[in-house]
């Protein structure tokens, strides 16, 4: 398994973990769609998830491990590449050929990480302590309350929308780049997978954003 430590091997690790994280987003959105069916449906769904907590915990830890793999490899390669960049051009390097999102992966990635911490520390944390509280709050009302860190709050919503847009940018390059790292050519038999890219960089983020807007404008 020496190959995992080569430059290409590291990228393969990032790519695989990235794809897993993408798939997680798909589930996440799927759950959130329940919001459209009213607060009861949503609360029930969360309750069901609560009831299988051990399984969810295992999944959460796996996800955390995958995330750490993704981040640690990215940091490792970026640090290595940073060394190569130290000596780049005083006259400026013009790369109008490469896309902006491809050159800003590290920036968007870091921003997303910050967002993730923010997201987990408010909503996820609130959900975790919920069963011990007796305020009569439902999962739905926690999520949509008008308090900093929750989606009923205007500024938080804007923060969320911006962050989700950054995720879209990250995934636009990330998903295609992962396919390239797996060696899939656009014109090959598996090339159709490239078309799925739009799901991750446009449809999923758009879905999240619509939900947030709906909460903001009290449509849901």
């Amino acid at each position: 398994m020496r190959f995992l430590f080569s430059s290409i091997g590291k990228k393969i690790q990032i790519a695989i973990s990235g794809i897993f994280l993408c798939i997680f987003l798909l589930f996440h959105l799927g759950n959130n769609v329940a919001l459209f069916f009213g607060s009861d449906t949503f609360n029930q769904m969360v309750a069901v998830l609560e009831s299988i907590k051990p399984i969810i915990r295992v999944m959460e830890f796996s996800l955390l491990a995958i995330l750490l793999l993704h981040i640690s490899n990215a940091i490792y390669l970026t640090r290595q590449n940073k060394e190569k960049m130290l000596s780049k051009y005083q006259g400026g390097l013009l790369n109008d050929a490469s896309s902006v999102n491809s050159r800003t992966m590290v920036l968007t990635g870091t921003a997303i990480l910050a967002f993730l911490i923010f997201h987990l520390s408010y909503i996820w944390y609130s959900y975790q302590i919920h069963e011990h509280s007796d305020h009569g709050d439902t999962y739905y009302s926690i999520l949509t309350q008008n308090k900093f860190g929750f989606l009923g709050h205007r500024l938080t919503a804007i923060l969320y929308i911006v962050s989700i847009a950054l995720i879209g940018s990250h995934l636009k390059h990330g998903f295609e780049s992962a396919l390239k790292t797996f060696g899939i050519l656009k014109k090959s038999k598996l090339g159709f997978i490239y078309n799925l890219s739009i799901l991750f960089w446009l449809i999923i983020p758009l879905g999240f954003i619509i939900i947030i807007l709906c909460i903001q404008f009290n449509i849901i």
Binding site: K11, N81, K84, A97, S98, R103, H173
Partner: peptide
Amino acid sequence: VTQMDEEGFGSCTNTGACEAE
């Protein structure tokens, strides 16, 4: 690939600048 890594070349982040230049 091993030799390429040993020589200290960086990794590819699929920006495509190489093809353009």
